[in-house]
């Protein structure tokens, strides 16, 4: 096995490079079943983190994990961004938190068999990204991740319903209510 390239912090200045217009608009335009998932990222002092980058990846409603290209469609005429084509479901969102630490993703509900958005979080001060999951509608019975957790921590992975087709998923990096983060078995993890 080859030794992996180490991770390094995303730093404070990715904001003009990685986010793209419509990065959180995963659902096809005008889709009647679209949901919103939003939340704030908090640090160990309970302060919002205004320079985090949130990426989400999920199965399509039909269960497909094949994805589609076109999340950050580029315009070969101007060199700018064209925006998604409004039809294909890429399954991928990328949103920088705003000045108040908030991010919003508009997407389609994940399927009952894989009822979560996989969340990858980057930030200045975070030497290596963190994975978590935002389970929608309580997750599936017998889910291996949820059932491995004690009751008081399980709730940190459940997106809370805050209105029709609207969910809230806050991420706490440290301290009371600290979000459960996931280790997928990478070599450098202790």
């Amino acid at each position: 096995m080859r030794a992996p390239t180490p991770s390094q912090t995303i730093g404070p200045f990715y904001g003009y490079a990685l986010p793209f217009p419509g990065g959180g608009d995963v659902a096809p335009v005008g889709h009647p079943e679209a949901i919103t998932v939003r939340g704030r990222v908090y640090d160990g002092a309970g302060e919002p983190v205004p320079d985090a980058l949130v990426e989400t990846w999920q199965a399509a409603p039909d269960g497909s994990l094949a994805g589609e290209p076109g999340s950050l469609r580029r315009d070969p005429v101007t060199g700018g961004f064209l925006g998604r084509n409004g039809v294909d479901f890429t399954g991928f969102a990328r949103v920088a938190t705003d000045a108040d630490g908030q991010w919003v993703v508009r997407t389609l509900p994940p399927p009952a068999a894989l009822p979560y958005l996989s969340v990858c979080l980057f930030a200045r001060g975070l030497t290596r990204h963190l994975f978590t999951r935002a389970y929608v509608d309580g997750g599936a019975a017998g889910d291996a991740v949820l059932s491995a957790l004690p009751e008081e921590r399980r709730g940190t992975l459940l997106a809370r319903t805050e209105g029709p087709r609207a969910y809230r998923f806050d991420i706490r990096l440290q301290g009371p209510g600290e979000t459960v983060f996931l280790d997928f078995g990478t070599g450098g993890e202790s």
């Binding site: 640090d43 160990g44 002092a45 302060e47 983190v49 990846w57 999920q58 199965a59 994990l65 994940p110 894989l114 979560y116 996989s118 930030a123 200045r124 001060g125 975070l126 030497t127 963190l130 994975f131 291996a144 991740v145 491995a148 957790l149 921590r153 990096l173 440290q174 301290g175 600290e178 979000t179 459960v180 983060f181 996931l182 280790d183 997928f184 078995g185 993890e189």
Partner: peptide, 21 residues
């Protein structure tokens, strides 16, 4: 990094080719 790292251990997730990740 002081206020931006989790203090609790990460939850190790076993290999699951069915999982989204």
């Amino acid at each position: 990094s002081a206020l931006r790292h989790p203090r609790k251990p990460l939850l190790r997730v076993g290999a699951d080719p069915e999982a989204a990740e």
